[in-house]
Computed example of a mutant assay.
Amino acid sequence: MPKKGNRKRLKFKAGDVCSESVTVADYADADPAVVKSGRVKKAVANAVEKEVKLLCGLEASQGAVQEVVSSVASVTADALDSNDDLEPEDDGESETKAAHKKKNKRRKESSEFSDGHEYPVDIWLVLSAYIRPEDVCRFALICKNAWTVTCTAAFWTRLYRRHYRIDADLPLRLQPDSVDKMRCLRARVIRSLFHLYEPFDLRVSKIPALPESTPTALLNSKCLLFWVRKVTGTRPEALWEFNFKFVKEEVRGKNGYTKSLRRPSRYEDVHANPDSDCYILQVTTLNFIFTPVVMGMTLTLFTINVSTDMRHHRVRLVFQDSPLHRGKKRGDQGGTQVVLDPVQSVKLMDWWHPQYPSSPYT
């Protein structure tokens, strides 16, 4: 606020009486640019009070009620307009100082409300013992220290021990002895939760064998590995499983990458996962079908149609040497084609799926 010495005094005369009448609408429709604060200033209030005292002493013949009201309105309007009539040489410096003071006051108030309290990592580690597996992401988004806790080996070890059951049917790679290793700890705990944690187990059972988004989700995916396995079951003839291991390979522009928090280097082994962003496409056929080598190539087309015998499916895969860019048509022509017919079943499994083939590193 400006200093008292720099403020220009507002003087009002009792003879400044206007004959025009003032209504309530004049105040309701007042220009907000003129009346910024929405409150009558102290100097104006004192001048109005003085004017009313003087007019109340007059006789009824000397002044009408409308003139009294007009006088009050005139004084108020003149006081509001007087801010624009101030000389710049007197108020220029005071206005600058007032603006700086208001700015500093706003900064101080905002800093008081925005700083908050920063709790140590140990407190967040204690709270993490009560977090459900499906709420790990929400917990990590609270603050940086909470996110740091989810990077530690202690967090994932406690999460595993909290849901482990002795009677659970776990693969050998997910037994407690294997989980005690630091390498790929997070990946092993997540995989084990789909065996131990009932909500995750139910989630897997509700996933259809082949989701509707599978053909489009596999586009521009690179084939890392391909193998064929003979399966013997209740049927007199054997079935054949064609397994394609894909990794997501998105085509991004120059500014397509986003900055992310860099986890502490001492926890890199905990978060290591060779199968990250990988999934298996498993196609089961009634007989063996010769297929060309497609490892290292990119899938550009995937279709599922009805087989010629009208009882099974027909799967067609087209691979190219390079991925398709956005806006270009799919590679129906050219490339390497893999046609599987007749097909009994098609499955798409993410790296955390219980039926995902085990890796020697995880």
Rank of each mutant, 00 (worst) to 15 (best):
P208M: 09
P215T: 05
K103A: 03
L125T: 05
L125V: 02
E118V: 13
V204F: 01
R183W: 15
E198M: 04
S111P: 00
M182F: 02
A146P: 01
L86M: 11
L193R: 01
L159I: 02
R191P: 07
S94W: 12
A187I: 01
W156T: 01
L86N: 08
D180S: 14
W124G: 00
Y197I: 09
V189R: 02
R132D: 13
S192G: 14
V149K: 05
R165E: 15
V69M: 14
R132Y: 11
W124R: 00
D85L: 15
R165D: 07
E212N: 05
T150G: 10
S82T: 01
D91V: 12
F139E: 03
H195E: 06
T152K: 07
S205W: 03
R162L: 11
A209P: 01
E112K: 12
R106C: 04
K103E: 03
K181S: 13
A140I: 04
L196Y: 06
K102N: 07
L172E: 12
V69P: 01
A209D: 13
S192L: 06
S178K: 08
P215M: 03
N83H: 15
F139Y: 08
Y160I: 10
P176F: 06
A168E: 12
D177H: 13
E95R: 12
T214Y: 04
P120T: 00
S82Q: 13
P88C: 08
D122R: 06
R186M: 12
P176M: 08
E134L: 03
A99K: 10
P211S: 05
V136A: 13
L202H: 04
N104K: 14
D135T: 08
K102A: 14
S213Y: 14
A98C: 08
R106E: 13
C143L: 08
S70M: 07
L193Y: 04
L170P: 05
S205L: 07
K97V: 15
S70L: 06
R132S: 11
D135L: 11
A209F: 13
N145I: 03
I142N: 04
F194R: 15
T148A: 15
I123V: 09
I207V: 12
R161N: 14
D115W: 03
R106K: 09
L127D: 06
A77Q: 07
K206T: 12
P171H: 02
L170E: 02
F155N: 00
F194W: 04
A154H: 05
T96Y: 09
Y197E: 02
C137S: 15
I131A: 03
S94R: 13
K101T: 11
E95T: 08
R183T: 14
D201T: 10
A73R: 04
S114W: 07
E87A: 15
D122P: 02
V121D: 08
C151H: 01
D91H: 11
D81P: 02
D115M: 09
L127W: 05
K101M: 13
L193F: 01
E134N: 11
I123D: 02
R138N: 15
V72M: 13
Y164C: 09
F113R: 07
F139A: 09
T157W: 03
P133K: 08
V136W: 10
L210P: 02
I123R: 00
S94V: 09
S111V: 00
C184Y: 02
S70Y: 11
L210H: 08
P215F: 08
A79S: 15
W124A: 02
A146W: 00
A146E: 00
